[in-house]
Every structure is written in structure tokens, then in C-alpha cells.
Nucleic acid binder design. Sequence first.
DNA 1: AAAATAGATTAGTCTTGTCTAATAATGAGG
DNA 2: CCTCATTATTAGACAAGACTAATCTATTTT
Lengths: 220, 220
Amino acid sequence: MPTRSEEDHIKAVYTLLQEGDSAFTKDIAERLQNKASSVTVMLKKLAEKGFLKHEPYYGAKLTAKGRGFALQLVRRHRLWETFLVERLGFGWDEVHEVAEQMEHVKSEKLIDKLDAYLGKPHFDPHGDPIPDKKGVIRERKTRRLDSCAAGDHVRIAAVSETTDGLLRLLDSKGLRIGTSLMVQEVHAFDGSMDVKPKSGSAFSLSKDVSHHLQVEKGKP
Amino acid sequence: MPTRSEEDHIKAVYTLLQEGDSAFTKDIAERLQNKASSVTVMLKKLAEKGFLKHEPYYGAKLTAKGRGFALQLVRRHRLWETFLVERLGFGWDEVHEVAEQMEHVKSEKLIDKLDAYLGKPHFDPHGDPIPDKKGVIRERKTRRLDSCAAGDHVRIAAVSETTDGLLRLLDSKGLRIGTSLMVQEVHAFDGSMDVKPKSGSAFSLSKDVSHHLQVEKGKP
DNA sequence: AAAATAGATTAGTCTTGTCTAATAATGAGG
DNA sequence: CCTCATTATTAGACAAGACTAATCTATTTT
Ligand SMILES: [Mn+2]
Ligand SMILES: [Mn+2]
Ligand SMILES: [Mn+2]
Ligand SMILES: [Mn+2]
């Protein structure tokens, strides 16, 4: 049974591999607010325990066992986030840190019952998929909003950075998971984008924002 | 901010002082499944941090600060137990260990919202009082069932030992918090007691069981 | 190709929390 | 008052997880 710190390291590797194709010491350290040297030591231990392969100087890859653990941890994290937002009335910008703690509570029964209680949700409050008990993730095809062109009709599927600032900015513009938008114009100069929600008037989004919005095709 | 282990020690001292009038090293160790020597070290540290007074060889007493912390921890523990039973459908014999972990999640907002979500309950699934946000406990006058005499009408208010075995035994006899009983006879030989629930026929309870049931006066 | 830089690793230290073994204090019975 | 069993404390060891400082590797720049 991995310790809390081990779990967090495994999850960091998993997330980095999701986002790119490599999990480097420095990036893991940054994510966990640790020093790189501490991460190196941890990676060596996790490699010995069979959760990952550590290729010194070239980062880490998860083994099947490591991936399985990571998926369960991600499942717990996202189920708790869902609980906090749907049942306790937290804002979507307030749940990350708390879920970061709750995900480490050890009880399979707890997660089974929580999952059932929430209605076996497939997505968390940020639109991220929740792996099922077996670790299976329902796949969707999404693209970043900043890769869309004028005239595209889209629906916000997920926010890929859950920093408080971004989430509150989205709140202030009335953007949330499920919101439908039409891309009116993309400005080459700064990459900003004018979008129009189904109801309401158009406004502009900076590239910083549109880059972190995952969208799926919407109907015109 | 106390660590998890510090919190557990403070709570153990609190509970022992509730049950008797002293918290000795050995009993704390037993409760926490640690060795006495480890507890001594911890008590010294907690005394330095101002949570308690440690009188070597005579046990520990909480300071006001320590009592405040203990009450908040007890609050969190019992709120989570309530959540697990009332919302997730756990049995009352299954929640202790999980709540033992959840109580350590650090977030004041979480507990406020959980409390509101549960309807600001005053008692947990075992009938134990839940301190409010300020640490105030609603007092009741209860007595142990084994101190009752033939003819007494009582209502089960709390179970003072939450071992799985006892709770399941109570389940099997249909006894729970709020059940009303009439004491029919007390047998001097073994201290066992015949009781009759409001509806249903009478049965016998051993002294081991009646000793752990807290009751309040019921109507005849 | 050499040098510079960024990143990674190693070595050694510290803190926390636990243990075992040795020693000491307390309180009860004789 | 002495002895003994119980309980508590101290001392010393260890493992986990973090850090800093020193060293090393890979890659980019000159
Ligand atoms: Mn975490
Ligand atoms: Mn999320
Ligand atoms: Mn606990
Ligand atoms: Mn309880």
C-alpha cells in the first residue's frame, strides 16, 4: 500500500504523461512543491516497488501497476471534487486542495458508496473524466478552444488548468462546463478570440484562457 | 497546526478524561496502538506546545487550548460518522476506522458545509454528542443501563463502546439509538437483565452489554 | 569542439514518529 | 519499612520524507 507521498508522486507522473509524453524530475517536483532531489529519491523507490520505470536523466514512465494505482487515485480525487461541488455547494475553484487530502483516505467501500451516492458520475466539476472502478475512462474527442476557427460552434467540455484565477475568470464571464459558444473571430495579433454564447452578447477571450478550455463540437 | 499523530494523541487524552478522570501513558498507548515510550515522548512535545500539562507518572490533563482542539477533532469525527451512516448507507459498526482518517482533513470550510448539509446534527450514529462550531456540547443526563432497576422505563441514548461486535449484537436484537425499553427483571447472579421493547417480546441482556448502553428516562 | 546552462543525481543532514532495551518511580502487600 | 509488580521514562536506533550543497550529465550555444 503506497504512502500518501508515494501516491502523490505516482499521480504526478500520471498527470504529466497525460499532458505530454514525459514526466521529468523537475516537473514532478514543481507539481508537488518539492525539490528535484527529493523526487529523484522517490522515483528510485517507486521503481523498486514496481510502480514505474525510472530512466535517469530521461524521466519516468508508469508500469501497468502504477497506471492502475494512478487511475484509482484520480478516481477518488474527482469523485470527492464532485461531492464537494454537487452536494456541499463548494465553488469549482475551491475544491482542489481539499480533494487533494481526501483522495488519500483508505477505504474501498467508501469510494464505492460515494460513487453510487453521486450517481456514478462520468465527469468531475472541471469536466475531467472520472475513471470507473476498473480504471476505465470514457473517452471523448475534444480540442483546445484556441485551435478553433471563426464560425465554429462548440460546447465547453473541460478546463485543463484548475487554478483559482482561471476558474473565477470563467465564472465572471458566465462560462462553465456545458456552455455553448460560437467563435466569431480570431485575432492574429494576440491570438485573442471573440466568442458569443447562445444567449447573451459576444465578448473576448485571451489566448491564455482559450488555450485552457477543452471543447467538443456543438450544434450550430 | 498539529500533525495527524499529535491530533490523535490529543483526542485520546480528551476521551480518556471524559471516561474517567485521568489519562495515563499506558491507556493512551493502548488506544493508539503505540508503545508507552512513544507516548511519553509525544506528551512531552504536546506539553511544550501548550496543548496539555504532563505530570510525569501521573498522566496528562488538557489545557483550554488542548480541549478546544480536541473538541474540534471530535466534532469532525462524529460529523463524518454521521455522513457515512446517514448519506452513504454505512452500518454504524463500519464507520469508525474511516472517520478516524477523515477527521484529519484540514479545511474549516469543509466542516462548516458538511455540518450544514447534515442539518447541524447534535448526535452521531452511536448517540454521542457532536460539539458545535464553538466546541459547545449539548449536555444530557444519561445513566448506564446496568444501573437501572426492575420497572424502569428507558430510552437508549448512546452506545459507549463502538466495537463491531457489540454493535452487531445490538443490531441482531433490534436495539438502536432511540429504542424504548422497560426493565423487567435484574438477576443478581450474573447481573443480566430482562428487558422488553415497546413492541415485541422481552429478551435478556448480559451485564457486558447493559454496561455499555447509556439510557435516558423514558415514559412508562 | 569547447564552454555554458539547465536539469538530475548523489551524499549528507534534519525532523518526525516510531520502536526496543535499560532504568527509574509509584503504590500495594507483606 | 521493604519488596515487588506495574507503569513510566530515558536513551539510543531506525525508517520515511524532506532539505541543501556538491557533483555530474545532456543539450544547446558559441
Ligand atoms: Mn494528494
Ligand atoms: Mn478536477
Ligand atoms: Mn484519527
Ligand atoms: Mn461515534
